[in-house]
Amino acid sequence: MSELERELFEKQLLTIAKGLDYPRTPDIAGSVMTRLRASTRPRFITRKLAWSLTIILILFSSLMLIPPARAAIIEFIQIGIVRIFPRPTEPPIDAIQTATPESIVPTTATPSLPSATLIPSLSRIAGKTTLADAQQKVNYSILLPAYPPDLGQPDYVFLQDAEGAMTILVWLDPRQPDRVLMSLHFIPAGSWAIDKSEPAVIEETNVNGQRAIWAVGPYPLRLSNGDLDFTRLIDGNVLIWADGNITYRLETNQPLEEAIKITESLKSIP
């Protein structure tokens, strides 16, 4: 490209790029300031404040010794690396009327706008690979469901390497190929921590004799590891179980009975 051609090309780029239709810029300042105000603490603790904190800590420790209060503070269901915080058993009436799952999502969790189809979103995610490649790179067996019989191989395989290789298999709906039929996640211990808050339904069940949890959305799901921390609103049905060091998540729109059939049909890649 000659200097002149390059200059012309640059001018065109500048003009054309100006026409890009960006989404409206959200109120980032408002969200940031809310988060800052919530987290801002005095930098220096005065002697008086230190005493107050000590008293609060003592009170809190005492509270921990009283069984019902302790249960209220720390009760959650742990399965593999997933912790599920159920709704309080007897919430106050006001709380039932006002505390929808959306209202407890922290400001970082922004409900998705109807602005993107799935396939472009999936195609831009890093870590896309093949089954064979994923199996070669992880030190656990990637399992595939034999049920339903016509399911076939996953349409997408992702290997998310963030302090432990999480494998994600995705099957698309053959009738609506821009929609996900189900996804299966293999999460090794020591990589991510996953917290779910107050799913609409939590049910204990079994997968091949192993304890499993069935959670129905919507509920906020928090993923965190050393560097990253996300909160997202999950709207599907999820079956979670653990076997050894691996936690499995099956996300689907199918009912529990179907989900169990799928998970109980899992077999190693031939």
Binding site: S121, G127, D235, G236
Partner: peptide, 21 residues
């Protein structure tokens, strides 16, 4: 771009069956 959170967001949209733009 390398994170799983991004993948979950895409799945969330898919399960909600949101309209195509």
């Amino acid at each position: 771009r390398r994170s799983a959170g991004r993948y979950l967001a895409a799945l969330t949209r898919a399960f909600r069956n949101e309209p195509i733009p």
